[in-house]
């Protein structure tokens, strides 16, 4: 029994991505400064940060599109930067990636886009390939688009096709660079949830770049916050809004409105705001000032973590 548990534990440990001390410069400018993190299997692992903080560069380093200057990127314990080209190609067949602009091959129909990895890497017959293509297209809720060209479908559909193409070979790792950039909030959410579901279903290690707070709250099972190329904070969506990290708070509560909303919610939870009192009374309450002014106080109630 013990042994089994240990084995299971080992399995869990080995099927994940671990990055250690990754640094990357372009010319004289250092973009990534010693970033370390662990991306867990079966979960959606988010990399968040403002535009230009180095999310894309980190993700491209992880898959080997950029060479790291320093550091290790361990896929199941295998260090990608140290791999010879042949081995890298092998590993890459287990990686699916959804690009920011979808990166569909625009000379091919949706069907051929999704079929392309199968054409390249399997010896299946035509029917088996088409069946698989239809299976994944159905999985991402796309029907009747098989014969359309990428230019003829909407942004949200392109993302779905991109996801379908990324998962068609049953990859162990899925990378998504801002899967909901350029989409309306509703479609974004649908795409986010789709990625989360597929991740669980296929038991993949999924890494997602995002700067969208909706996604962070919805699918941030683990979160790495990058600030100017440095790891500033790690945690998950249950912890993130209660963090007292100044730079993280600037990112999360970018608008005045959200900051106020956060304070309101906290006051409500503490029972300071309720239906019997009007705002004036609340503002006069010494405890309001105590709570809003003092960050230490907020953190002293760990039980709140579970309420989200």
């Amino acid at each position: 029994m013990h042994f089994l548990q240990l084995a299971a534990c080992n399995l869990q440990l080995s099927t994940m991505i671990e990055i250690k001390n990754v640094s990357k410069s372009f010319g004289d400018i250092q973009i990534l400064k010693g970033v370390s993190a662990v991306m867990e299997t079966g979960k959606t692992n988010l990399i968040i940060g403002i535009s230009g903080s180095g999310k894309t560069v980190l993700q491209k380093c992880m898959v080997g599109l950029f060479e790291v200057d320093e550091g290790e990127i361990l896929f199941d314990g295998n260090n990608l930067p140290a791999m010879p080209e042949e081995e890298r190609k092998q590993l890459r067949q287990q990686i699916g990636m959804l690009f920011q602009g979808s990166a569909l091959f625009d000379s091919m129909t949706v069907e051929r886009n999704v079929k392309f990895p199968l054409d390249m890497f399997t010896k299946w017959d035509h029917k088996k390939k088409i069946d698989r293509v239809n299976e994944v297209l159905e999985r991402v809720n796309l029907k009747d688009t098989n014969k359309k060209f990428p230019a003829e479908v909407s942004g949200g559909m392109k993302k779905r096709v991109g996801i379908a193409r990324a998962i068609v070979l049953n990859p162990k790792y899925l990378f998504c660079d801002e899967p909901n950039s350029g989409l309306d909030p509703q479609t974004s959410m649908v795409i986010d949830l789709l990625i989360k579901e597929i991740t669980k279903e296929y038991n993949m290690t999924t890494v997602i770049n995002s700067h969208d707070m909706n996604s962070v709250m919805e699918i941030g099972q683990t979160i790495l916050y990058l600030y100017q190329g440095e790891k500033e904070w790690v945690g998950n969506n249950k912890e993130i809004i209660f963090s007292k990290n100044q730079k993280l708070n600037e990112f999360i509560f970018a608008s005045e409105f959200l900051r106020d909303a956060k304070d309101m919610r906290m006051l409500e939870e503490k029972g300071i705001i309720d239906n019997d009192r009007n705002m004036e009374e609340v503002m006069k309450d010494p405890e309001t000032h105590l709570l809003m002014g003092d960050n230490e106080k907020r953190e002293s109630h760990p039980d709140r973590d579970d309420e989200k």
Binding site: R88, K89, L91, Q93, A103, F105, D106, M120, F121
Partner: peptide
């Protein structure tokens, strides 16, 4: 150039294609 800029080349590389 179009394939490079729209990341189609990266997409091929990621699949493990030279």
């Amino acid at each position: 150039g179009n394939m490079r800029v729209s990341e189609q080349i990266d997409a091929l590389e990621i699949m493990g294609i030279n």
